[in-house]
Design a protein around this nucleic acid. Sequence first.
RNA 1: GCGCCCGUGGUGAAAUGGAUAUCACGGCAGCCUUCGAAGCUGCUUUUGGGGGUUCGAAUCCCUCCGGGCGCACCA
Length: 572
Amino acid sequence: MSVLNRATKEALAAIGAALPGVSVGPDDLGATPKPEMGDLAFACFGAAKTLKKAPPQIAKEVAAAAKTAGLIAKLEAVGPYVNVFFDKTAFAAAVVDDIASAPQDYGATPAIGKKMMIEYGSVNTHKEVHVGHLRNVCLGLAAVNLRRAAGYEVIPAYYIGDVGAHVAKWLWYYRKKRSDDASEDVRAFGKIYTEATRLAESDEKYKEEIAAVLRKLEEHDPEWEALWLKTRDICLREIERIFAELGATFEKKYLESEVEAPGKEAVKELLKGGIAKVGEREAIIVDLEPDDLGIFLVLKGDGSALYSTKELALAKKKFEEFPNLAESVHIVDSRQSLYFKQLFATLKKMGFDKPMTHLGYEFVTLKEGAMSSRKGNIVAYEDFRDELLTHSAKETATRHADWSKEKTDRIAWAIAEGAMKFGMLKQDNDRPIVFDIEAALAFDGFTGPYIQYAHARLASILAKAGKEGPSSSKAGKTVSFAGPVDAGEYAVLRVAADLPDIAAKAAAAYRPSLLCQYLFDLAQATNDFYRDVPILAAAEADRERRLAIAQAVKAALARGLALLGIRAPDEM
RNA sequence: GCGCCCGUGGUGAAAUGGAUAUCACGGCAGCCUUCGAAGCUGCUUUUGGGGGUUCGAAUCCCUCCGGGCGCACCA
């Protein structure tokens, strides 16, 4: 149990004992508006109802009657609230101890024996990876880390769209216009897709040509299949490379092509079972009107597969491979909300009632409007990364002219990654991100590098004190802790104590933004501490204690960033 | 038309139904002879309209207005 939870429990016990006949729970206990007002606040409105007394009166009685013990030092009635003050030194020592005992796992819950799959990073081949996909990967990565910290056994999976109409269109165009181009430059693939779309939309007759290519592919026509396999594999290698550089690792890798045939079988079963029927233009549909979910199309009129066809089989495949999944999450942008509702409803009709959820998020747009691979007005991930990296390397080089090229590049990438991932996660899932390169290149304010910087400053102090080498990634030896702590020391530890709770909330709701907000608060508190509390120049006893605090806070910052998939370099 | 999501300072955002709505950016004015100025300090400006529920509403409900997205052969 975290130190804060322990203190909260003690506070509730003390207050509960002073209020016989009233049930008090964690819900009655919240944060105070300002740190000076105490560590926790108990609202007396609920008790007022039960006791038929005025809240301020109850507050006064509770403050007078409650016994202080352990981590609780003082209770004070302010209006209808009882403000709880922790024993600063005892609390600070407990937090430092808690972090020092397992710095890399600070705030983690022991295993809860539940297995879950998180599917994310599900991009398409034959198209360029853009900043919209980046949001997906960052969210998925954070979700995996957060759920693992919450005690789940998580299986990260991706599901790549390596077949379908977009691939057929690409191959159709390539053979028609670009077959002389032997280039294997994947970044050119995206442009080919845009050109293909332009040509395809220029004349109705092309529609049928492309549909024919798709049928050929599904029939495994050797010539088309060879071209498809060759180009697909180039794309898959590129996608793998991008995932690797973002630190995204996957235990299960699904391809649309492998569930195409089983998907068609599933549709046959649906027809046999009377769940699906033939709709307009011979298409196979599931009528979900009674569930207010409209019509769900599961197979095209010409017999070729749709996204839905394949996903019917994929859902089954996942649970065949992992029968005991407590949850199977699909991280896909919220434009697919209706589609997933339809999919889950159809699976349920098939008697396949498994815990599947769609985690939606708003997409990334440009100031000019929506990005579209079809139109070609996208910000390619690699262009963005290159620009960010160039900027970050330049900034790093100005500050550290003496660093080697290797070191500069390594640190510059950590900073670029911090800016990129934090930028994608700091906003709540249900708000669109309007991509602005100026803002994305910022390293100050509410950004990843701001937090990395606070961490590096603490690292620098510790290095000077000989407590931790600048390049060590593991926590050094623990430092002795002897109180009493002053206000500045306590303030930063009080914030650090919130991490376990915030991480748990962020994990439960899949909201990394909560952790971003929190880490920014912790970094600000760190900068206050840095400004107000001298460490190296302090008297021996204070110095040791403050170094211990610096070490604990540094570990908390690093841990929080790690949950977001961001590195915390000791120098930057 | 129906459904989902969102309306908070100039801009972008935060706030388990709780105390005086919190940050960042921008702008203006300051701070490097004291542990790293990618930092710090000060000033600047806010809950779309109207009802309702509640001791208490940015938050919940209704309604209107505004924006985004989705609604049969794309994924």
